[in-house]
Write a protein that binds this DNA or RNA. Structure first.
Lengths: 213, 213
DNA sequence: GCTCTATCTGAACAATGTATAGATAATAGA
DNA sequence: TCTATTATCTATACATTGTTCAGATAGAGC
């Protein structure tokens, strides 16, 4: 049924299909509802239906498993953001602005609805190396979405060009900071829309492009 | 030597002076150089020179100890910020702007130089209740410093009054977000000054108050 | 069918958070 | 000053954790 060249892939089905993926999937589900701080390797193994030691054939230690989860979460967030942006397809300044807000809001919604994911991604448990993270940032889909959104804002005249060089890091900082502070309970939920309003105002107002309504 | 009315305080010196404070002090020192994720209650107790069980007379569990550390760290940060701001005493727009930057920079410096502290304060281990945190925010010295700084900016004409309602949450979000992202390695260190530049520009530019230099 | 190798299990270990019973020392009252 | 009391700390124990390692097992290749 399976050719010999697929032997290796087939052998990966030994007992549990792709056990590495099974571990990441189970860990993700358990983290989602309990938070990283309450996850044990043994618990994940039990959930997968496998002995704890089995994990060590795929991950050097528990941290590596959590980092694996983290990587998939960054991908998931990027998915959400791509979908959120794709809703607005026009080329007007209003559309560019809608895309920009959708981008920020999807980030916040993710943090709010998946707080345990958010805390893992940006917390102490997701030990991606600084090099790996730097690479990830420059290559990431989310970063390119942000770049594109800001380019649109500038091209449609919805943004002060003088602020363009600060665009990505400023927008990411604002949105990430507000999300973090709200998720951890330091600011009330309503703050996020206000922060978005303020950001939009402060980025665009010099051109007199006053947001409607 | 000690009057009977001080008996209770004196009894607190039983064996180790104020053991509760000793635990917090030791935990703080150990967290500072190793990070919360590597701290054990037993290790802290050993460092204090006391049996692990002794901790349970002052803290219901390990989390409570860490929260205690967190509370002192918020105080320490506020101290740093008060000192940073106090350097600039003038009443000009330039001074107001200098105070504003000093406030942000002291926040970032804290995060950068005391990354382990920063991660505890805003991470998953510092489980202050949402109510307590909300209270803390509105009452905190740091928040009042920020309020005052923004008032100064507005009064000296260094800031667009239309943005004043968003001032605190916007500034805190930007500075906290940039600090977090840099501390966790998602953005390079140099980003912070750029973010501050961008923030200052975006807050003030409508008035044509262009920063010198 | 036999051998080999990847894959997983079982048992073990040290370290951890925490509970409980008891020891110890300071205080209060006589 | 002696005794009883109470706050403070210790010793011990237990379940759970991450991790290691020797061995069992099942599938692949001949």
């Amino acid at each position: 049924m399976v050719t010999s060249t697929l032997g290796r892939d087939q052998r990966a089905n030994y007992h549990h299909g792709n056990l590495e993926q099974a571990f990441i999937t189970a860990a993700t589900a358990m983290i989602r509802e309990s938070g990283v701080e309450h996850i044990s390797l043994r618990g994940v193994a039990a959930h997968v239906g496998v002995s704890p030691s089995a994990a060590y054939h795929y991950f050097p230690d528990k941290d590596a498993l959590l980092s694996g989860v983290g990587r998939t979460l960054f991908d998931l967030l990027a998915d959400k953001q791509e979908i959120a942006v794709s809703v607005f397809t026009g080329t007007s300044a209003e559309d560019a602005r809608a895309r920009f807000r959708a981008l920020g809001r999807s980030y916040f919604d993710w943090g709010k609805n998946e707080a345990n994911f958010f805390r893992l991604m940006f917390g102490v448990f997701c030990c991606l190396t600084p090099e790996g993270r730097e690479l990830e940032r420059s290559e990431s889909r989310a970063w390119r979405l942000l770049e594109k959104s800001l380019n649109d804002l500038e091209l449609t005249g919805a943004m002060n060009p003088a602020l363009r060089p600060y665009g990505e890091i400023l927008a990411w900082s604002v949105v990430h900071g507000a999300t973090s502070l709200i998720v951890e309970g330091h600011l009330p939920d309503e703050s996020f829309e206000a922060v978005l309003d303020g950001l939009e105002l402060s980025l665009g107002i010099v051109h007199g492009v006053v947001k409607k309504k």
